[in-house]
């Protein structure tokens, strides 16, 4: 008798649609609480990047001084130009990817706020929370990767004018590989945030 009543109650509870939905006001409040911490993380990243770039700049200036000693004027100008391009491209893209990672972090925080709000409404957010943790780890890994790239100065040997061209080409090849690696890490971070969002979308669709 009792098992039958229990089974009946269980089937009723399964059949009853869950009323849990994201309360946008609560989600915004949770996000605003987390925003201060997020701003601090962003500021730390930007300050660290600036610090690394200043250290690189010192080593680059020493390399530029070496280039100035090259007797052949045309070669000297080409080498200066190449060094400028290493610095310019590295600087622009490490700044850009830092901005992208900051943006992804903000988006992930908003996903997290929605997750908290769903959990407060007794929705099972286990998969979503696991995806959020993975995304945090991917963003941290990509941030480290960007900072490592920013700390590299791509200096080549200029002792022998006959081999300097080959040295520059080897350095460009290394630079290209490094840039592709960092880009792949940033893309992986974006995909992991996308995965967390997909989990959120599943839960919100189920609870509409």
């Amino acid at each position: 008798m009792y098992p039958l009543i229990f089974a009946g109650l269980l089937s009723m509870s399964v059949a009853t649609p869950r009323l849990a939905q994201i309360n946008p006001v609560n989600a915004v409040r949770i996000y605003e609480n987390a925003r201060q911490e997020l701003q601090e993380v962003k500021q730390e990243r930007e300050e660290y990047l600036m610090q690394v770039k200043e250290q690189v700049q010192t080593r680059i200036e020493a390399h530029r001084a070496e280039i100035e000693k090259v007797a052949n004027e045309r070669l000297r100008n080409r080498l200066t130009e190449m060094t400028n391009r290493f610095v310019s491209i590295n600087g622009k893209w490490t700044s850009h990817w830092t901005d992208v990672l900051n943006r992804l972090d903000t988006i992930l925080t908003k996903i997290e706020a929605n997750s908290s709000e769903l959990a407060a409404s007794e929705v099972d957010t286990t998969l979503l929370d696991a995806a959020i943790d993975d995304a945090h780890a991917a963003i941290d890994a990509a941030t480290q990767s960007v900072q490592d790239l920013a700390s590299k100065e791509y200096i080549y040997n200029i002792d022998d004018e006959a081999t300097v061209g080959e040295n520059v080409r080897e350095e460009i090849s290394l630079f290209k590989t490094d840039m592709e690696t960092v880009r792949a890490d940033v893309t992986a971070a974006r995909e992991s945030v996308q995965e967390a969002f997909s989990q959120l979308r599943v839960l919100t669709s189920e609870n509409e």
Binding site: A27, H96, R103
Partner: peptide, 22 residues
């Protein structure tokens, strides 16, 4: 990104996040 935690807004902001390539 905006302060909105609306799911559709988050989706649009995520789509507009471009990694780019050098």
């Amino acid at each position: 990104v905006s302060d909105s935690t609306d799911v559709d807004t988050i989706e649009a902001e995520l789509e507009a996040t471009i990694t780019g390539s050098p």
